[in-house]
């Protein structure tokens, strides 16, 4: 018996990173643009997906992976639009991880798919730490949540390529300063693209669709 001290410098989340990489390889080889869609509960992830299917569904093949702690309510909302949707129930976990997404991919028909959106569990903290293999992280902040959110949830803002500020139709009724959101998000992530939208009326969504189309085209060139 002896006492030992073993120095090991290892990333604690390395197992998830490996699975995320495996997912990414699948997406790249199939030429599917993959988005990890994150927000707090109720900011409008499923509403954005419904709109996006309406806006782009006739030109692109879209599929959705729905992450929820319980229920398949969101997946049913998507299926009603005639789009493939696979439900992941996280069984209590507050975020999706690479392994859960890998399982869901296996249940999807990837053939000819252009866009895969993974709706993460509603939560502004935990999902930011777990890569799923997506090409881009996209986050939604609804104006009703307040303009201080970039200060309180910096990692989510720092890791998301796109910020959709949703529910701008509610601006007259809430104390939320869009300029403050732009400024604070810009400090955390100067390369982040910001789209101000309403999934109710549809305002601002064209810029979001255009961004998606550009990215879909970029990834699609890989397709054999």
């Amino acid at each position: 018996m002896s006492q030992v001290k073993v120095p090991v410098v290892r990333n604690i989340l390395e197992a998830n990173e490996r699975l995320a990489k495996a997912n990414r390889t699948i997406f790249d080889q199939a030429g599917i643009f993959a988005v990890n869609l994150m927000s707090s509960p109720g900011a409008g992830k499923t509403s954005l997906l419904e709109k996006t299917i309406d806006g782009l569904g006739d030109r692109y093949r879209i599929a959705v992976i729905e992450g929820d702690i319980q229920s398949s309510y969101d997946a049913e909302r998507i299926q009603r639009k005639g789009v493939q949707a696979v439900q992941i129930n996280t069984d209590g976990a507050c975020h999706l991880d690479g392994g859960m997404v890998l399982e869901a991919i296996e249940a999807l028909d990837l053939d000819g798919l252009d866009l895969l959106v993974i709706e993460n569990v509603g939560n502004l903290v935990c999902p930011a730490e777990f890569n799923l293999g997506e090409h881009h992280k996209v986050m939604i902040l609804s104006v009703a949540e307040g303009d201080d959110k970039p200060l309180k949830y910096p990692l989510m803002f720092q890791t998301s390529s796109v910020l959709l500020v949703n529910k701008i139709d509610l601006l007259p009724y809430v104390d939320c300063d869009l300029e403050k959101i732009r400024q604070r998000a810009g400090q955390l992530n100067p390369r982040q693209q910001i789209f101000e939208v309403s999934c109710r009326g549809g305002a601002g969504l064209d810029a979001w669709y255009a961004w998606l189309e550009t990215e879909i085209a970029r990834v699609r060139v890989n397709r054999g």
Binding site: Q3, V4, K5
Partner: peptide, 19 residues
């Protein structure tokens, strides 16, 4: 989010000195 070191008891002296 990094593991730096593990300290503990090694049952087999040979193996630990080999590491």
């Amino acid at each position: 989010l990094t593991l730096l070191s593990i300290e503990g008891e090694s049952g087999d002296e040979d193996e630990s000195s080999e590491s």
